[in-house]
Design a protein around this nucleic acid. Structure first.
Length: 414
RNA sequence: GUGGCUGUAGCUCAGUUGGUUAGAGCGCCUGGUUGUGGUCCAGGAGGCCGGGGGUUCAAAUCCCCUCAGCCACCCCA
């Protein structure tokens, strides 16, 4: 075994795996395009401030999960742990706030310094969308409906459930936070030590704790719904109505919260039972305060991000590679005609495998190994008659075919 | 960052109470078949037993450290 290993939490994506991942990205791209979203690519790294100021000092992403380093000019640089902050920064940098509303799709690697496990890597990949400049709940309806359609198109719609909650606006959230903390303080003795810490730092997080003791306390906790002001209530009602009109099925989960500070109103997750502890496959919400917080004009936003690796794991069947046609020179004398024919067929759009060496038997074996659908054999005899021998690799039947009509004959395999 | 489990051939795994040349299946290569793949038969290559240190006459096996993977927690896609 070689001592050359990839860095912890990273791995090489070999061709077979690439096919599955490409399917995920392509499907997301196509569905997003139908909603009018154009692809945006922001840099893989930003000034650390971009993330530190927006993600919220209390979030774990900032405190322990960022890949941060100093570059040669002494600037603090961070590999992006998610893409919303980068898109928001791009909006400001490019003065795009003049052209709202804007709809972006993105995909690419993200980096978080975490302990790896199944469906969790230090370099992982996301596809996501951001809808900027629309304050109405219709925007949330749109991105959620798009997410549902995306998962459906991928074939994993049946394996996922949309969970939905509202965090309310700043006022409602603050009010709820107070009621919740008050309640939790009353039962302080029953909380886990992690939750005791969260009590000050991020009390809402206690709501989705997995600790059994916490759960018992949470069960009787006050509901966010009771702390919502009229505006927040109306927003949420319109969201639910919109989802029903758009025929998107959802389940309300009052314990669904967000780790990042800039979220408000809608919070949603598509979850699955098939991935162990990493059940969330796509998650998002509204982040109206973010862009102003970064120094831009007040701009509402909503969107989601999905884990490419997690979705790729959910796809049942391996994606099949296109079957090639093998072109085989019978003897070295036919090497040149074989190369010429292979190129002609490739130019015509066929997928062609041309072996590099070996006698005919070896080349046939290779044709079999690459799962060729047909073999086109060029021998002295056939060539003297301007023909080739075509073998169907599944049935084993073969026939002589004039070169002039070869492409037409092979069309059935493409 | 915390806890548990696991590292033996490219892959999946055996390997007895420490004992001499470390095995199997699959895969790979060669030949049986110099103009025909899959099946079959015969042969072959491929291992610092994750790495380092220690105990011992002797370590894949026991001890310590370290690295990595998996699972869970924290957190999150």
């Amino acid at each position: 075994m070689s001592s050359l290993k990839p860095v912890r939490g990273t791995h090489d994506i070999l061709p077979e795996e690439s096919l599955r991942r490409r399917l995920v990205e392509k499907t997301a791209d196509e569905v997003a395009a139908r909603y009018g979203y154009g692809e945006i690519s922001t840099p893989l790294f930003e000034f650390t401030d971009v993330f530190a100021r927006t993600l919220g000092g209390s979030s774990d992403i900032v405190t322990k999960e960022m890949y941060t380093f100093e570059d040669r000019s002494g600037d603090s640089i961070t590999l992006r742990p998610e893409n919303t902050a980068g898109v928001a920064r791009a909006l400001i940098s490019n003065g795009l706030a003049q052209q709202l509303p804007l709809k972006f799709f993105y995909r690419g690697p993200m980096f978080r310094y975490e302990r790896p496990q199944k469906g969790r890597l230090r370099q992982f990949h996301q596809v996501g969308v951001e809808l900027l400049g629309v304050a109405q709940p219709l925007a949330d309806v749109e991105v959620i409906a798009m997410a549902a359609q995306f998962l459906q198109a991928l074939g994993v719609g049946g394996k996922t459930t949309l969970e939905l909650n509202t965090l309310g606006d700043g006022e409602s959230r603050g009010a709820y936070r107070e009621t919740l903390v008050e309640y939790l303080l009353g039962r302080k003795g029953e909380l886990s030590k992690e939750s005791l810490e969260r009590l000050e730092r991020n009390p809402l997080r206690i709501l989705d704790s997995k600790d059994p003791g916490d759960r018992a306390v949470i069960k009787d906790a006050p509901d966010m719904a009771d702390s919502l002001n009229d505006l927040s209530k109306r927003f949420f009602d319109e969201l639910l109505e919109g989802l029903e009109t758009a025929k998107v099925a959802y389940v309300l989960n009052p314990r669904l919260v967000r780790g990042l500070d800039y979220y408000c109103h809608s919070a949603f997750e598509f979850t699955t039972q098939e991935l162990g502890a990493q059940g969330t496959v796509l998650a998002g919400g509204r982040y109206d305060g973010l862009i102003k917080q970064m120094g831009g004009p007040p701009t509402p936003g909503t969107g989601w991000a999905a884990g490419v690796e997690r979705l790729a794991m959910l796809i049942a069947e391996p994606v099949e590679r296109r079957r090639p046609i093998a072109v085989i020179p019978v003897a070295p004398g036919q090497a040149a005609p074989a190369l010429a024919l292979a190129q002609q067929l490739r130019q015509a759009g066929f997928t062609v495998d041309l072996g590099y060496s070996g006698n005919m038997g070896k080349r046939m074996k290779r044709a079999n190994k690459v799962n060729a659908c047909a073999a086109v054999m060029l021998g002295e005899d056939e060539l003297s008659r301007d023909a080739a021998r075509v073998r169907d690799m599944d049935s084993g039947e073969q026939r002589e075919e004039p070169l002039a009509s070869l492409e037409d004959h092979l069309a059935r395999y493409n």
